[in-house]
Amino acid sequence: MTDLLRIENLKFRWPKAKKALLYIEQFHLNKAEKVFLQGPSGSGKSTLLNLIGGVLSPESGHIRFQGENIFAKSEAERDQFRGDHMGFIFQSFNLLPYLNSIENVCLACDFSKLKTERVLSRSQNLEAEAKRLLEALKLNEEDIYKKVTDLSIGQRQRVATARALMGSPELIIADEPTSALDAQTRQHFLNLLFTECERFQISLIFVSHDPALGQYFDRSYNLSEINQEASVGLDL
């Protein structure tokens, strides 16, 4: 298996904080691998996601994505890199309320030429691909054109997943996407997410405070296992 993401000696400290919040000596993610990260609130999960997304910069260490050190790039290059190679699914507020489902899914391509090119290489246009993804995620035609505020929470998460999948990024980062779902919907959502990730060979980092979900993933970690500073910091 080839590395998609490799974290080495990553140390992060909030400005003015006495102690580092995160120190990860080694962590890697293989291509098409599904990794579960579990940890209580304040354990640094979101900070780690912001670091992988290139939004935060570490005090030291590096994150290599397909061999490239993310932090060797400028801030603007990191924004572009995130848009080109990653997709995000959040716990809530995953969609812009003023765009419909199709537009929300296509938003992924608004900031990435690479994703647009990938979509257009296999689909007629962006809208057709968005529709295809939404249908694959079991949203029916009627729901696709509804205002996103009229969709159920489960449906909204599926639209967000379609956006994350749009343009086949190498990595999807899901930050507690199932917290607001009931058990049945959660299972259904996970099945759909896994199916689509496997179809496009996409790696997945799935963060949750619910350890019960770990069984569905290739690897499962408690953040404290990989974060040597886990016992001290507060994730604000």
Binding site: V55, E75, Q80, G83, L95, L107, A108, F111, R163
Partner: peptide, 12 residues
């Protein structure tokens, strides 16, 4: 949250 969402899809 809207800003954060835009940032996640690559908005600078």
């Amino acid at each position: 949250r809207e800003m954060a969402l835009l940032r996640s899809v690559g908005a600078s």
